[in-house]
């Protein structure tokens, strides 16, 4: 499974401080720690604080690349911030993300094509996040067909059904889980799927437990990637074990170590 480490995000205080003071060590430690813990990609988000997000994204990508070779997910709502990230990234990057709006799709699929990048498509549009699985599938299908039209390889597309916090939108858990299953009927080969996992437990008092259980359920439904905190060892162990049960890895007594090799 694709594990995208979420910790390099300007929304976190330590990262915001590092960006402000141009302190490379903090960013590089986060990059190394997440990679060693099992992340096979690192999310990079400048956060809301930066007044100059384009410069900040460039600095973050360069700083991370001095420390690790892990591929990057360039995370922004602004296309020009994504473009500088793609331009600066040494290895093949993932665009995080586009919505299902035409304007956004055209612009970001264009960038995906231009920079040979992978892309996450969120099943939301100007009307907001859908409340049911059917609308999620409808938007996913729109993203899939736009991908095909613009010549972006379907193998490079991740659909994100958008996870909502269980404490404010409790009925959405099942909708997201079922949507992940339904997405697999959209095309052949099916699109990959990804979730921003931590959102499910936002504001709750049992965050690690909720994250872990939801992720395992999603993996059982066919989830292929997640943006999460890889330093939560129990969480990564649960992902590896879930995939083991699904016969995606060959068992050995040290299967948890094997995954991190």
């Amino acid at each position: 499974m694709l594990i995208i480490g979420e910790l390099i995000n300007g929304m976190y205080q330590n990262v915001a401080k590092a960006i402000k003071e141009q302190d490379k060590a903090i960013i590089q430690k986060l990059a190394k720690d997440q990679t060693e813990a099992g992340a096979n990609m690192l999310d990079v988000n400048t956060g809301p604080a930066s007044a100059t997000p384009v410069e900040t994204m460039k600095w973050l990508v360069e700083t991370i690349q001095e420390a690790v070779d892990t591929p990057l997910a360039i995370d922004s709502t602004k296309a020009d911030v994504i473009e500088i990230g793609l331009k600066t990234a040494k290895s093949r990057a993932l665009i995080n993300s586009t919505s299902a709006d035409d304007e956004k799709l055209d612009r970001l699929l264009g960038l995906a094509k231009q920079y040979n990048a992978q892309i996450i498509g969120l099943t939301m549009d100007k009307k907001g996040v859908p409340r049911d699985r059917a609308t999620r599938s409808e938007l996913a299908l729109k993203i899939v067909s736009k991908c095909m039209e613009s010549g972006v390889n379907l193998e490079d597309l991740y659909i994100d059904p958008i996870v909502l916090p269980v404490n404010v939108a409790q009925n959405q858990g099942i909708e997201v889980l079922e949507a992940i299953r339904e997405f697999q009927l959209l095309c052949d080969p099916p699109p990959k799927t990804v979730v921003g996992l931590s959102n499910v437990s936002q504001g709750t008092q049992q965050r690690p437990l909720i994250n872990r259980i939801f992720m395992v359920m999603a993996i059982a439904n066919g989830l292929s990637g997640a943006i999460l905190d890889p330093l939560d060892k129990d969480l990564v162990d649960a992902a590896v074990t879930a995939e083991l049960i699904l016969n995606k890895h060959i068992y050995c007594d040290s299967f948890l170590t094997a995954y991190r090799k």
């Binding site: 060959i250 068992y251 050995c252 007594d253 040290s254 170590t257 094997a258 090799k261």
Partner: peptide
């Protein structure tokens, strides 16, 4: 195969 993988890890 499980032991093959295990020996490599050890």
């Amino acid at each position: 195969i499980n032991i093959a993988k295990q020996v490599n890890i050890l």
